[in-house]
Design a protein around this nucleic acid. Structure first.
Lengths: 199, 199
DNA sequence: ATAGAATCGGAGAGCTCTCTCCGTTTGTCC
DNA sequence: GGACAAACGGAGAGAGCTCTCCGATTCTAT
């Protein structure tokens, strides 16, 4: 009862080819134009009728997920791999920076993490929970060793990540040199000198 | 030649009343729902036919500007007032924080500063230039006294402001306690430990 | 009170977007 | 090569949005 989808019907050869092509064109289109690109436009760029694309992906959301979910899964996997790293602070900041660096290059990925657009990754999906859990674990370890401000909660970091993404994306659009992630990581860092600069 | 709009036709009493009501309802609707709210919906909430609202504001953009431009002008005015403050660092961080605090309470204002939506405040408008110039001046002074990282450019700060707004808005939506502006200001601060700049 | 101008209301034009339907074309298996 | 299922294409339904048009209504000056 698990996957009645894989072996049941091996897809005709042309269909498989076309599906792959749609996936690739959609990937490029979404990366450059973001989630707001229309389904019709993706079909047009791929050179198919819109009906054909709908045959493979029943909704726009399904297509977007087919293209992007893997990316986010990889972020989660990265976080899990770092969850036992020796230097917890380095692991946390490194992961945060990596996510920003990679996502900033993909408009649709930004839109999705940005969440503004309400598509997949909305709370309730397993992946959203996994993402949040992985982030929370990295954060907790980094805080335990005093690398990150103890008053930050996982949700705060999630929001900061989204904000950082928004900033980084804009900066890239104009060829900015400063890494936004660096600035924001600096802000999340626990202050090394306990007495605040009352001086 | 200045204002051929005020004395020419004093508007009929009912029209003036209705215009004011539209403005107020639009203000509330935009603050809570953001720039994506439809013109029809604003008219409906105000209790007018859509034609009536169009009579007063020829496009949706005009209505939005009538509601929001004043707010942004005030941010610019605040920045100018602080441009000669004694403590340049305090002036810069205080202004940044104030803008975030106030804008975060108004969805449409966020959308506009966020710029995602391409409405007013797009480059080219005088106000956008004024905003950028005021920010640049505060920043330059704060950097001169060593309060802010010297590698940050005005554009970077503008982008960080937008990112901070996005983060703060989400944090508020769930009642978060951490002030995002504080974290990000911390990140923009020049490191006290590093050698004093050029001196 | 009444004429005449100013204002209102909302149907609908015109556009875009998602998604469906079904006649036509193409691949596969014998 | 032929039969039949699978896949394709694109017109168009349906929903939402901005904005226009003009007959119906309301105000104001006399």
């Amino acid at each position: 009862m698990g996957d009645d989808h894989s072996a049941a019907r091996p897809l005709r050869a042309d269909a498989r080819r076309n599906r792959d092509r749609v996936l690739q064109i959609a990937q490029e289109a979404l990366a450059s134009d973001g989630l707001t690109i229309s389904f019709d436009e993706i079909a047009r760029r791929a050179g198919f009728g819109v009906g054909t694309v709908y045959r493979h992906f029943p909704t726009k959301e399904a297509l977007v997920e087919a293209v992007l979910l893997g990316r986010i899964e990889r972020f989660v996997a990265d976080a899990r791999a770092l969850a036992t790293a020796e230097d917890a602070g380095r692991a946390f900041f490194g992961w945060f920076t990596t996510v920003v660096e990679q996502a900033a290059a993909n408009q649709a990925l930004c839109d999705m993490l940005d969440s503004g657009s309400g598509m997949a990754l909305r709370p309730g999906s397993t992946l959203a929970d996994d993402f949040a859990a992985a982030l929370a674990r990295l954060l907790a370890r980094a805080q335990r060793v005093g690398a990150v401000r103890p008053d930050l909660q996982a949700q705060d970091v999630h929001d900061l990540l989204r904000g950082c993404l928004a900033a980084e994306r804009r900066a890239r659009a104009r060829g900015g040199a400063v890494r936004m992630a660096e600035v924001i990581c600096e802000g999340m860092r626990a202050k090394p000198t306990s007495p605040p600069p009352t001086f």
